[in-house]
């Protein structure tokens, strides 16, 4: 199966990455060559195989829900591209 330009644009929307037409065309070519390579997996019958989601198949450890880092608000906000008092600022979302 192949990925057409429409699909590339749909994936770009889902990925929240804007694409101009030239870049979308280049990606269409790249993605098709990668998916052609990936399709080798169809040679394998995996109908009876259980999926492996994590290599560490032990129970996840629980830890106490304790506050370990305190008073780091300023340090966190310092990395923000735009902040006002104690808030992150984004373009207006409510009219």
């Amino acid at each position: 199966m192949s990925i057409d330009l429409k699909t590339v644009k749909h994936i770009s929307k889902l990925s929240r990455i804007s694409l101009d037409d030239e870049k979308a065309k280049k990606l269409e070519k790249d993605l098709n060559s990668i998916f052609k390579f990936i399709e080798k997996l169809n040679e394998l019958d995996t109908s009876k195989t259980e999926a492996l989601s994590s290599i560490v198949e032990t129970k996840l450890q629980l830890r106490k829900d304790e506050i370990k880092s305190k008073d780091i608000r300023e340090q966190i906000l310092k990395n923000s591209p735009s902040e006002n008092k104690d808030f992150f600022v984004v373009p207006k979302v409510v009219e």
Binding site: S18, I76, N79, S80, P81, F88, V90, P91, V93
Partner: peptide, 18 residues
């Protein structure tokens, strides 16, 4: 582009993300 790192300006929130 909200809490840290590079941000580009957009017309609205979605445009800014993209």
């Amino acid at each position: 582009g909200v809490k840290y790192g590079f941000r580009s300006n957009g017309e609205n929130l979605i445009d800014m993300y993209e």
